[in-house]
Write a protein that binds this DNA or RNA. Structure first.
Lengths: 339, 339
DNA sequence: GCTGGCACTCCGCATCCGTGAGTGCCAAGT
DNA sequence: ACTTGGCACTCACGGATGCGGAGTGCCAGC
């Protein structure tokens, strides 16, 4: 009973603080939420919560503010999923359905997410390593220069130019195409290196050097570029919450320019259907110690195509944000999965 | 003689203000730059310059600050081109030479530009409309679904999925490929619509519906997407100069998310070898009235592949920025032109 | 037309309350 | 064992005040 009320107080603090961005005091709390107890009682509970490290006061005799730990408890135990309104769902659907290709899907998703949450949104392109080869094309640009184009089942197109030692005539290019095509078609990208390793030995002698070179180029493309692509939107939303420049905003903007960091944020949360939240110091990147990340994966359960999520101040509407991220990820997953 | 000194004073004001970000007064000016006249004289000149609208004072009895008009005069008549140091040139070259493909070139350029200028950098991908077709590929995904891939001479790859009414067997796909390939190979993209308009009539009856559909899809891809791609970097640099949030930074960040706006900024300055500067209110976008844009085109003179540039506060090191933009554009142009 | 001198303006900074919101603690009530 | 009202205390915030200094405009003299 007592414990229950304390949690209720914490929830009230979080909700009020998220709403007003001002430290919340005992009196206002007792009034606005019908806690049916006096401010004095609330004060006692607050003292206990502060003792436990869930809230803190910016300075003596100011209201209380949730700590990272407080938000964590809120997210884990106190927040109920806030379903989107039918209007929102329809908006998502219709907005995404207008997309004409993969690029467009990703760009639309990221903008949508940024608008819905009023935060910074990040969407990862379908991961190469998790998709498989739909088609391989080889085009000769000049006799000694080949262009390899690889198309994945998610619609991603990767290209790479490759120099061959001797000139390759049309027959050779055609042969190369068929050799690679039949060897790789349908393979998952992670399996490609193993598959092409001993490919040269299986072809006639004349073709061997070409296959070797092309295989090497392909390998290089796959290794040198586990580089996943990302789309970003809504950075302007950062100005909504950040209060000072050099301490808060700059480091975050800098972090957002680092693909590696962003990928890390998304990567650890890649299970579709499961929205993960990382709050403040739970982010191991220093620059993001005052930020929270709400992320999930999209695609088939157990085999995510990529991740998406939003980043905002710890003071954030978690239920709403989580709902939005979840919903968009689902739609995008359906859209790309159906292909 | 008199006129000369006034200009010299203006230059000194601009240089000092860019350096210190503080209104500059007559005394400091007379000391730091060897003008060989007394502060009082400088004051007279300043009064004249203010009269002419080149400088202004934030409040009575503060130093002077250049106006947009003042910067304009400075850029047009007072700034000498500041050549990059050999070290910088080498850095640019080696940094760009590591690029492995078009995407990489663009990404590297934009980061490089942001670092060199410490501003926000924008680079446009080689414009579709100005490049020509190197190769067209058609892949059948499912019998009724074709994937069109178009590769341009700048290395850009555009793709589009296309549904055909009846199923297309391998023979048909091969025919389609050869018809389109021979019709379009080497054509400039702007000429493609005209070329494919009457293509259906030239092929055997059986093939006609397919050609019609595919041609329509291609057209759609070209029309619906004059959409040029852009890369952006260095937004964190905005925090260096902007002083308040909602009035300065937010609108700029918002503007930066609008492709259309960015393209406009670059588009008007697309002549390679010619660096254009747009200062403050010369930008017709309201949000950028306190910003300056330094831009140029890259590629062959008279036939630019795309634009690139940086955006920063009007209080900016114009000579240095212009030199950097110019240099990077040249290298990128060479790199892509050589292909 | 340049220069020194002088009075003037006004920003920035520090200082100084007064106010009020909010707290912690305690003693009394249930 | 909780809850409650009362009370003294703390401290950020905002407005008022005062001061120093940088910078200006103007004028008279060189």
């Amino acid at each position: 009973m007592l414990e229950d009320r304390r949690l209720e107080v914490l929830r009230a603090i979080v909700e009020d603080f998220v709403l007003t961005n001002e430290p919340v005091g005992s009196k206002a709390l007792a009034e606005r939420h019908n806690l049916r107890v006096s401010p004095a009682t609330v004060r006692n509970d607050m003292a206990a919560l502060e003792e436990g490290g869930y809230i803190t006061q910016p300075h003596t005799s100011a209201g209380r503010v949730p700590t990272d730990k407080g938000y964590r408890l809120f997210v884990d135990r106190l927040s109920s999923v806030k379903p989107l309104s039918p209007a929102e769902r329809r908006a998502i659907q219709s907005f995404l359905e207008g997309a004409i290709d993969l690029d467009d899907v990703v760009r639309r998703s990221v903008r949508l997410l940024a608008q819905l949450t009023r935060q910074v949104a990040v969407v990862q392109y379908p991961s190469l390593s998790r998709s498989s080869v739909r088609h391989i094309e080889i085009v000769s640009l000049t006799p000694a220069r080949l262009l390899l184009v690889m198309i994945t089942d998610t619609g991603r197109v990767e290209q790479r130019i490759c120099e061959v030692v001797a000139t390759a005539d049309d027959q050779i290019v055609a042969d190369l195409r068929s050799v690679l095509g039949s060897a790789l078609h349908g393979r998952r990208l992670v399996d490609v290196p193993a598959t092409i390793a001993d490919l040269p030995e299986t072809v006639r002698l004349e073709l061997r050097p070409y296959v070797t070179t092309v295989a090497a180029a392909l390998l290089e493309a796959l290794v040198e570029r586990p580089e996943e692509r990302l789309a970003l939107a809504g950075t302007a939303n950062l100005t909504r919450s950040a209060l000072d420049f050099t301490d808060t905003l700059r480091p975050v903007l800098e972090a957002l320019e680092e693909q590696v960091i962003l990928l890390k944020l998304l990567g650890e949360a890649s299970d579709p259907g499961m929205v993960t939240v990382r709050i403040g110091h739970e982010n191991d990147v220093d620059a993001l110690h005052t930020a929270s990340v709400v992320a999930t994966g999209y695609g088939r359960t157990g085999a995510a195509l990529g991740g998406m999520g939003v980043l905002g101040p710890t003071r954030m509407d978690y239920p709403g944000t989580m709902a939005a991220v979840y919903a968009v990820a689902r739609y995008v997953g359906d859209l790309l999965g159906a292909d």
